[in-house]
Design a protein around this nucleic acid. Structure first.
Length: 453
RNA sequence: GGCCGGGUGGCAGAGUGGUGAUGCAGAGGACUGCAAAUCCUCGUAUACCGGUUCGAUUCCGGUCCUGGCCUCCA
């Protein structure tokens, strides 16, 4: 079965055919770095991580570009509020982002370009657009003329006249038409900027992705992705800029968009105070749990974050690691076909996860150790497709902190002596003592093992 | 107002033109000194109303509800 993906451009599931099978190229809109990344930022990065893992198995080479937007009005504002230098803020928060992505189990992208390091490319592109009559200079700004580009609206399928009528947007005086968007805007001396043919200024939001995608992936590439909320105007504008510059038919062949993340049923917003950063989540929730939650519904569906889904994901991982615990993993055992098939069908991660559960059940039901080992090996190999289940199970259950292990083992030993002497009240007392510290004991024919609740 | 989505058991969440996965929770049982883990068994779930069809949860139309975008947003 070939890989099929839902293309927002055509609103259909399509068979994925790479432009160049020897180098599959994809671009994902990365974060604007002015604060810790939130759970909504995490979703596309995890989805694209699963996608690149899959593509790397299907094709010899994959170039995955995810940008960092490090020049933006939100950044300027945040730096002023923090009384911090802009560079300090963007470097700091970029570092947070990279750490968070790592903790989520994501493989770093092939390229992670910074907008501020590609202003020259943006200026070149804007100049071309002006020469071609698709952009104009007005009062220190450069704007893209939407009317000049016939293909505008192909992705969002929006009729902008009607949208503008309903939205009642205030039209900036320097715009020829209300729908025109900014390619370049002037900066004040105290605000970051670059010298350009249009004076000291800085780029608009959309142009960086067009410029950086072209630089690292070429005028035409396979897949472009991001959150559903970026379809309009961001991605629509990227298409307009790039195709106006490089010709129709250029830019991304397929567009993938993930559904929004809500928190307790509500959209995240700073005003509601339900803005959850990944960093904050990691204080109570392992990265792998967050990852499993993000993969437990289909990427195009909305996803609600709440403590219940986190608990459920945690329990699922307990079940998986329990099946892997104490098993001899054979690296040569192949992954499950069912998992692969599910992922090739538009990244059906919930179905893939259900296949993992079925393997776990088979591990538990298997009669012989050899059979259990083989199935556990299949489970681990299959989990790798999703970036899951690669930890040492003992680490999962006991945590990295081994400081108190000796004391725990001493108590387990004391309890087992009591059990041997049929002093069950003493045995239960020890169990309760450990349980009070969050340690659960499990007796088996192999002896007594422990784990954290 | 315009443009997109979505409504499946207590919860999460897939698939499918022919009585519907998977996990959690719940009930009963096996195992256990007791547990935990595990295994077995159990639930008349496809918003509503029409239409097409031999047959629809799946396709079409309508109704209701709900999410997103149209302003910075992943």
């Amino acid at each position: 079965m070939p890989l099929s993906l839902y293309n927002t451009l055509t609103r259909k599931k399509e068979t994925f055919t790479p432009l160049d099978p020897d180098n599959v190229r994809l671009y994902l809109c990365g974060p604007t770095v002015y604060d810790f990344a939130h759970i909504g930022n995490a979703r596309p990065s995890v989805i694209f991580d699963v996608l690149t893992r899959l593509l790397r198995c299907l094709y010899s080479e994959v170039t995955f570009v995810r940008n960092i937007t490090d020049i933006d009005d939100k950044i300027i504002k945040a730096a002023q509020e923090n009384k911090e230098k802009i560079m300090d803020l963007t470097r700091r928060t970029t570092e947070y982002y990279r750490n968070d992505m790592k903790a989520l189990g994501n493989i770093p992208p092939t390229q992670e370009p910074l907008a501020t390091e590609h202003v020259e490319e943006m200026i070149t592109m804007i100049s071309h657009l002006i020469e071609a009559g698709h952009a104009y200079e007005s009062d220190g700004h450069v704007l893209f003329s939407v009317k000049s580009f016939a293909g505008y609206g192909q992705l969002s399928r929006c009729n902008h006249d009607e949208m503008l009528a309903g939205a009642r947007v205030e039209v900036a005086p320097y715009k020829r038409d209300a729908e025109d968007f900014i390619l370049w805007k002037p900066s004040l001396p105290e605000i970051p900027g670059w010298d350009s043919p249009w004076g000291y200024g800085r780029p608009g939001w959309h142009i960086e992705c067009s410029a950086m995608a072209q630089k690292y992936l070429g005028e035409t590439f396979d897949i472009h992705g991001g959150g559903h909320d970026l379809i309009f105007p961001h991605h629509e504008n990227e298409i307009a800029q790039s195709q106006a510059c490089f010709g129709s038919g250029t830019f991304a062949k397929m567009w993938l968009h993930n559904g929004m993340v809500t928190v307790d049923g509500e959209k995240m917003s700073k005003s509601l105070g339900n803005f959850i950063t990944i960093h904050q989540l990691f204080e109570t929730t392992p990265g792998e749990v967050v990852r499993l939650v993000l993969l437990s519904s289909h990427y195009r569906q909305p996803l609600d974050w709440n403590t219940q889904v986190a608990d459920q994901a945690h329990q699922s991982l307990d079940r998986f690691y329990n099946a892997l615990r104490g098993r001899k993993i054979n690296e040569t055992v192949p992954s499950s076909e069912a998992v692969k098939l599910a992922l090739k069908d538009d990244l059906n991660t919930p179905l893939a996860i259900s296949a993992l559960h079925e393997i776990a059940t088979r591990v538990n039901k298997a009669q012989s150790d050899a059979e259990k080992d083989t199935l556990a090996s299949e489970l681990k190999a299959s989990g790798a497709w999703l970036g899951l289940l690669q930890q040492d199970p003992e680490m999962w259950f006991k945590g990295a902190d081994k400081g108190e292990e000796d004391a725990i083992l001493e108590l387990i030993d004391a309890r087992n002596k009591a059990r041997a002497a049929k002093d069950f009240s003493e045995a239960d007392r020890v169990r309760d003592e450990l349980l009070a510290k969050g340690i659960v004991l499990e007796d088996s024919s192999q002896g007594t093992s422990w784990r954290r609740e």
